[in-house]
Nucleic acid binder design. Structure first.
Lengths: 340, 340
DNA sequence: ACACCGAACCAAAACGTTTTGTAAAGGAAG
DNA sequence: CTTCCTTTACAAAACGTTTTGGTTCGGTGT
C-alpha cells in the first residue's frame, strides 16, 4: 500500500504543473491545454491509477456528488431494496453515489440523520416511504433540493412520485374481465391510506367501463395480512351467489384468499380466479399456481426520484412535478375463465 | 435559506478566533481553552445551528467518517434490507454514515464502484453477499480495511461473519425432536453452497446426539424453491413409512412442503410438522399455520461487520477473526407432537 | 528586579482539488 | 522592429476545517 497518488504526483510524473493536469483531466475539449499534452497527461494519470479525491474537489466546488436517501423503514419488505437499487443505479450513471439512512418512525432521529447528511454536504435528498402515503416534509429539508419517493405532500413545489393506484386496480380488474368474469369480488384494506381509496376507485372504474354492475355484497374490508385475506375469502366465497374472481388489495391478502379457497375446497384458477397487487416475488412466485398480480414499480420510481433531484440541482428553476406511475400486469397462473 | 454558517461565523459571533472555536468544540476537556470560554463558544455554536462541514474536516484529517458497503444483489430478498439496516444502525451510533453500492454479478462494475467509494475516501468497507458463500476479495480492496459480511474467503487475515449453518440446522431439528418426533425427513438444497453442507451436517448431528437413526430414504435433494419443496414433500410423504416431521432447507422450500402436504390431504401440524430456515417474515407469518423456523441473524451480522471494520480502523493491529453467528429458533405454529 | 512558567488564546499552514489571473513564447499585422 | 493577438502553461488563492507553533499576559520563585 503506497501512499495515495494525488494530482501532484501526476503533475510531477508528466512534467507539467498541477494546473495543467487539472485542466487536462476535467475540460473535455480544453482550450487551455494542447491536445498532445492533454493526451500525455491522461496517459500518465491512468498509468499511475490516479483517482481524484472527492473530498477535496467537493470542498473546492461546493458539490459533494453525494445524494442522501432517507427512508422510514428498510427492513420488512423487499420494496425498499428495489427502490434503493433504482436510486443507486440512476445515481451511479450520473457519477453520484447515495448515502442511505433510515429513521424508523423516530422523527428526532430522522432530524439528526438529516443534519448528518447535510454535514456531508449531500447535494440533494430523496425522501422515501416504504409504502405510498402522505407525509410532511421535515423542516430540515425546507429549501433543500428534495424529491419525494413513494410519498406525497401538500406542498405543490416539491416533486414526488407514487404508483398510480387507480390505474393499478383497473389493470388488475381488467385482467379478470378479459378472462370473462362478471361476478368479481374485492377484498380491500381497512386502513385509511391512498392505496385503499385509489384501488377501490380503480375497481369501480373498471367495472363501470365494461358495464358490469357491482354487487355490494362482493366487497369486503379486511386487515391487509394473510389472515385478513383468508377470512374475507371465506366470507365472500361462502355466499350462495359467490364471485367467480377476486381482486385482492395486496399479494399477502391474495395469499390468504388462496388459503380460504382451499379451505372451501375450491381450486385456483378453475373454481376461482385471483389477482393481487404488489408483485412480491417471494409470494407471487411461491404460490401454487403462481399469482397474477400488478407490479408496483419501485425500481423505476427510485430511478425517477434521483434523476429528478439531479435535474433540480442542475437547474433549480425547473418546475416541480407530481408523478403517478403506471403499474404493469404480471401474469402467472391464477386467472382463468369462469366455470361455465 | 441563508448562507451556510461555518466555523468562521461562530468565531466572529463568539468574539474568539477560529482556532479557539475548533478546540472548544472538539477537545472534550480542553487544556487549551478556559472552561468558561468553551461553554460560551458551544452555546453560540448551537444558537447559530453550526454543523461542521465534513468534507473539510475529512480532508484535513484524512478521515471521511464514511463506510462503504458493497453487495452483490440488494433487491430480491428482504435479507439485504436487514443487513443494511444493521450496518447503518451500528455506523450511526459511532458517528459514521454508510454508502451502499451494488454490482450485480458484474465484477467490472464492482471494481468501478469500489474506486468510486475510495475516491470518496471511505474509511473502510463492508463487503457483503446476500447469502452465505465463498468469495474472492477484489484486488481493489487488498490492504484496505475490509470485513466480509455473509461471506468467507481463504485469506485468514480478513475478518468475516456468517451464520452458523450447522448450529441453525441443529436448532431446527432439535425443535422437532423436542416435540417427540423420531422419523424426521429433510429436504436439502441441490446447490453446492456452504448452507447445503452445513445444514446437512447439523441435521445429522442432532439426530445422532439424540440417538435417532436416520433413514436415508427420508432425505431428498430439491431445487431451493417452492416448487422443489412441493415435489420433494410429495415424494417423502407418499412413502409408506413416511416421516412425521420435515426439516426444510429454507422457508420457501417449507412453503412448498405445505403445498405438498395439502395436496396429500395432510394438515400441518397435526399430520406433519414442518420447520424451515430463514425466518422470512413475509412467508413464515403468512403461512397457515405460521411456520416455525430458524432466523438467520442478518441484522446482527450487519451490525457486527461495521463495528468490526471500525475497530480495525481505530486499531489496525487487531487480529482478524472469522465469526459464525448462532441462529435463534422462531416458534410459530407448524410444529406439534407426532400423531400417535 | 530578573528570569521563568503556565494559562489562554491566536495566526498560519496544511489537507487535495479547481479556477482565476497572469506570464512566456511565438506568430501575424502594421 | 514594434505591437498585438493566440496559444500554452503556471503560480496562487480559495474551499472549511484541524493542528502546530507561537505570543501575550499575569504570576512565582529567587
Amino acid at each position: 500500500m503506497t501512499t495515495r497518488v494525488g494530482i501532484r504526483e501526476v503533475a510531477k510524473a508528466a512534467g507539467v504543473s498541477v494546473t495543467t493536469v487539472s485542466h487536462a483531466l476535467n475540460d473535455a475539449t480544453s482550450s487551455r491545454v494542447k491536445a498532445e499534452t492533454q493526451q500525455h497527461v491522461r496517459d500518465v494519470a491512468r498509468n499511475l491509477g490516479y483517482a481524484p479525491n472527492r473530498l477535496a474537489s467537493g470542498l473546492r466546488n461546493q458539490r459533494s456528488q453525494i445524494l442522501g436517501l432517507v427512508s422510514d423503514e428498510i427492513t420488512t419488505t423487499p420494496f425498499a431494496g428495489a427502490m434503493i437499487r433504482g436510486a443507486q443505479d440512476a445515481a451511479y450513471e450520473r457519477g453520484y453515489v447515495v448515502m442511505v439512512v433510515n429513521s424508523g418512525l423516530d422523527s428526532e432521529l430522522e432530524h439528526r440523520e438529516i443534519t448528518m447528511l447535510q454535514q456531508h454536504q449531500v447535494d440533494g435528498v430523496v425522501y422515501a416511504r416504504m409504502y405510498h402515503q402522505g407525509v410532511e416534509l421535515p423542516s430540515s429539508l425546507a429549501g433543500f433540493p428534495t424529491v419525494l419517493l413513494d410519498a406525497v405532500t401538500g406542498d405543490p413545489t416539491v416533486s414526488s412520485i407514487v404508483p398510480d393506484e387507480v390505474n393499478a386496480a383497473e389493470t388488475a380488474v381488467e385482467a379478470l374481465i378479459r378472462a370473462g368474469h362478471k361476478r368479481i369480488g374485492m377484498i380491500n384494506n381497512v386502513d385509511d391510506i391512498p392505496a385503499t381509496h385509489g384501488r377501490l376507485e380503480g375497481f369501480h372504474n373498471a367495472l363501470r367501463r365494461h358495464g358490469i354492475e357491482h354487487d355490494p355484497r362482493h366487497l369486503v374490508i379486511a386487515a391487509p395480512e394473510t389472515s385478513g385475506g383468508r377470512e374475507a375469502a371465506l366470507a365472500l366465497l361462502g355466499q350462495p351467489d359467490r364471485p367467480t374472481a377476486l381482486f385482492c388489495f395486496s399479494d399477502r391478502v391474495a395469499m390468504g384468499a388462496y388459503q380460504g379457497a382451499a379451505a372451501l375446497g375450491l381450486t385456483v384458477p378453475e373454481d376461482i380466479s385471483i389477482v393481487g397487487i404488489d408483485n412480491l416475488e417471494l409470494i407471487a412466485d411461491s404460490l401454487w399456481p403462481g399469482l397474477t398480480t400488478v407490479a408496483l414499480p419501485h425500481y423505476d420510481m427510485g430511478r425517477w426520484a434521483v434523476n429528478r433531484v439531479l435535474d433540480d440541482i442542475e437547474n433549480p428553476a425547473a418546475p416541480p412535478e407530481q408523478v403517478r406511475l403506471a403499474c404493469p400486469l404480471i401474469e402467472r397462473g391464477s386467472v382463468g375463465p369462469p366455470r361455465t
